[in-house]
Design a protein around this nucleic acid. Sequence first.
DNA 1: GTTGGCACTCAGAAGCGACGAGTGCTAATC
DNA 2: GATTAGCACTCGTCGCTTCTGAGTGCCAAC
Lengths: 350, 350
Amino acid sequence: MELDDRKKRVLQAIVDDYVATNEPVGSKTLIERHNFQVSSATLRNDMAELERLGFIEKPHTSAGRIPSDLGYREYVDSLMKIDTLTQKEQQEIESNISGTVDEAAELIRSATHTLSEATGFISLSMSPRLQKSFLKQIKILMIEPGKALVVLVLSAGVVKDKIVRIPNFVTDEQMMKISGAIEKNLTGKPLDEITLVTVETAAKDTEIPSPILRQVLYEAYTAIKQADQLSIYLEGEHKMLAFPDFSSMGRARDLLGTLSDSGMVAGYVNEMENQAQVTGKKDSYMIRIGQEITLEGLDDCSFITATYNMGDTVSGNIGVIGPKRMDYSRVISKMDFVKKKLNEELKKLT
Amino acid sequence: MELDDRKKRVLQAIVDDYVATNEPVGSKTLIERHNFQVSSATLRNDMAELERLGFIEKPHTSAGRIPSDLGYREYVDSLMKIDTLTQKEQQEIESNISGTVDEAAELIRSATHTLSEATGFISLSMSPRLQKSFLKQIKILMIEPGKALVVLVLSAGVVKDKIVRIPNFVTDEQMMKISGAIEKNLTGKPLDEITLVTVETAAKDTEIPSPILRQVLYEAYTAIKQADQLSIYLEGEHKMLAFPDFSSMGRARDLLGTLSDSGMVAGYVNEMENQAQVTGKKDSYMIRIGQEITLEGLDDCSFITATYNMGDTVSGNIGVIGPKRMDYSRVISKMDFVKKKLNEELKKLT
DNA sequence: GTTGGCACTCAGAAGCGACGAGTGCTAATC
DNA sequence: GATTAGCACTCGTCGCTTCTGAGTGCCAAC
């Protein structure tokens, strides 16, 4: 199963060539463009072997070979070398991300935008996983009779709010009492330790009649729970249409159709992240190639994600979706750099 | 320039047929499918006349006719009759929109979603135009030294917040004073009457040293101004790929490319709305067809918008973008119904 | 104004052969 | 045992021609 050196070079050359030209590559072109010191017949033997092992395949009998998913996998895992960005590329990215932005969400969004611009592919970001973040402030403001606004300030500078319905006759004053009690008792608690019970005990000595209290607390609780819902942001979907890989319309439709279901994509990214945690990821990025991706219509794509951090406990993902026939080395190095810059800027915010 | 009755019928039949089949329609098919009581030769004469007047055109010499933009325009303006929705269609829409939603933004979003589902096209909504809404509450909360959260509650139940940077040494107490003063003096004022000067005079008797005050007020002011920025929400872009009208990939790319620039689309919708105001719209909807749309890549689309209302002074738009070869009657009636339901639900929120 | 008839147009499908890039296999060579 | 030259074979692509048929414009007759 171990490939000898030349076979590795052959596979690498095939991937490189196919990525660059989008044409199946044959033994002759291989010699011409990648100066091997052997004859085409030898390469043909090697290629037959590589095909037997499942690394490459031919679209039809009289064409050259293209990498299979397994071939890309091998390439990504052990053949490619990550290249470094030029000064100019770095500057381009830096100037786009570092800014005078005060909200983390906006910063993440601009990093996502930059990522799509830099790679030419679809980029995405997941909102931070906030279960581990803690409550810094919680205020409930009366808006009008029957309506209140719950404002949460979480560690890592994230702010969430939600309008909730409350009993009509709750007074401003009562609300302030409840708000104060909750804040006093819950501040500093991680989100995932807050339960309906915690909230209720937090406010139990406010002397507000219990039925009223219960409803308000319930609403406050749902507002808190809602705060750590994952959301995903996608950008640049239309860029895929420019690639010949998706010129068949059917494929393009399947791809964009699947991506339009953002919940599904978010779920998948989350799953990727969890798997990486379990298997003990060694790399700073995760890659899924072609059929490895279990989402419909992404068989011709690769999915690359990385993790950003906000403080010690909170993290989220950014990522790229492109045709699996992509220049992995460049994409990864760009994503890595974006991630690095994003992390730096996020740090500045806290 | 006035068309006689039969010519009107011919044009109408051509549009109907072409919309249904996506095939150029010839004189013979016309007779077969739309039981005219005259011969094909007569229709050919009529069609030649309609072509001379610019209502229809032929893709090439030996094909049938298709409606031109002008033809669609005539159809929409005076030929079609708006049909009514079936009980079932109405229920479908109703059940999707009416819900237990407490925030207007969410309600509008769900209406937009419903609209895309019901029509099978791209739907869109503009955030409400809030310049005319008034400030119901404004609070500034300290988050940590140097950082505060401005929370605005506007009439019509809209809530906005923004994190702002403030001088490090501003105390919690000072902030409360400022916040109170602003709130006391600005509550009830329409957004578009609030200027930096108004804000500054509102807080002038707080006894806070002026340089500090100025910066805080400036930030509060920008937060207010930022609240009435228009934003647009688009849904169902990928659905366009299913239509043969966009099977040429180049067109599809142009379309989705343009739509991905949401600022541009928002600007266009806004412009449409303004024009309708000026010309004194008589209909409850606005239509732009094909080349009438000044956005690149939308030549094969039609753009239909309507206005929703939140209270007396605040309004926004919902709309549909589909192939210009669409069943206008159905789309308009569906949009109209969605708008109606949306307005009803928005009313309930206030 | 309407109709039947007719010559004409032209896109699209179908069929066909040449081309050529690429393959696998075999036998000779290093 | 690995490498190479040689060769017969495969098969998708390109360009060409031909055929078909839906549709047209126009004219003479009703």
